[in-house]
Simulated assay, not measured.
Amino acid sequence: MSKNFNPERLLQVLVAPQISEKATYIADKNEQVVFIVTPDATKPEVKAAVEMLFKVEVKSVQMANLKGKVKRAGRNIGRRSDIRKAFVCLKPGQEINFAEGGAA
């Protein structure tokens, strides 16, 4: 890690892991893990946070911004909040197991 990040900031960057059928397929096929991150998170911050929290080596990080859907309930129109996802590619042999609550 070439940059020094604030450890308190790194603890807030990762919001939650994305656990779905598609995320599981990506994890098995491409050795990637999907996280929901804060809207202002950067790739280096996400890489540093994953390496610090799960004690694994990260090869690369891809980011995606998802716009919230417009939803209606009768006359009322609302909108879900926007989210930002991080697709974290792990180096070969690395694994994160969420069932055990940490690195495997």
Results as ranks from 00 to 15, higher is better:
residue 1 M to I: 14
residue 1 M to Q: 15
residue 3 K to P: 08
residue 3 K to D: 15
residue 5 F to W: 12
residue 6 N to W: 01
residue 6 N to E: 10
residue 7 P to K: 05
residue 7 P to L: 03
residue 7 P to R: 02
residue 8 E to F: 02
residue 9 R to V: 06
residue 10 L to F: 11
residue 12 Q to Y: 04
residue 13 V to M: 09
residue 13 V to E: 12
residue 15 V to Y: 04
residue 16 A to W: 06
residue 17 P to Y: 00
residue 21 E to N: 01
residue 21 E to A: 00
residue 22 K to H: 04
residue 23 A to F: 03
residue 23 A to M: 00
residue 24 T to Q: 07
residue 24 T to K: 07
residue 25 Y to I: 14
residue 25 Y to M: 06
residue 26 I to V: 15
residue 29 K to N: 08
residue 29 K to L: 11
residue 33 V to R: 02
residue 33 V to H: 04
residue 33 V to N: 00
residue 33 V to K: 02
residue 34 V to L: 06
residue 38 T to N: 08
residue 40 D to L: 03
residue 41 A to E: 13
residue 43 K to A: 15
residue 43 K to G: 10
residue 44 P to I: 05
residue 44 P to F: 04
residue 47 K to G: 13
residue 48 A to M: 10
residue 48 A to L: 10
residue 48 A to V: 15
residue 51 E to V: 05
residue 51 E to H: 08
residue 59 K to V: 03
residue 59 K to C: 03
residue 59 K to Y: 11
residue 64 A to M: 09
residue 64 A to E: 13
residue 64 A to P: 03
residue 65 N to S: 14
residue 65 N to I: 10
residue 66 L to C: 12
residue 66 L to N: 14
residue 67 K to E: 14
residue 67 K to N: 13
residue 69 K to S: 09
residue 73 A to D: 05
residue 74 G to E: 00
residue 78 G to H: 05
residue 79 R to K: 15
residue 79 R to Y: 12
residue 81 S to C: 02
residue 82 D to L: 00
residue 82 D to H: 07
residue 82 D to S: 07
residue 82 D to W: 07
residue 83 I to R: 10
residue 83 I to N: 05
residue 91 K to R: 15
residue 94 Q to I: 00
residue 94 Q to H: 07
residue 95 E to R: 01
residue 95 E to K: 04
residue 99 A to L: 02
residue 100 E to P: 02
residue 102 G to C: 06
residue 103 A to E: 14
residue 104 A to K: 05
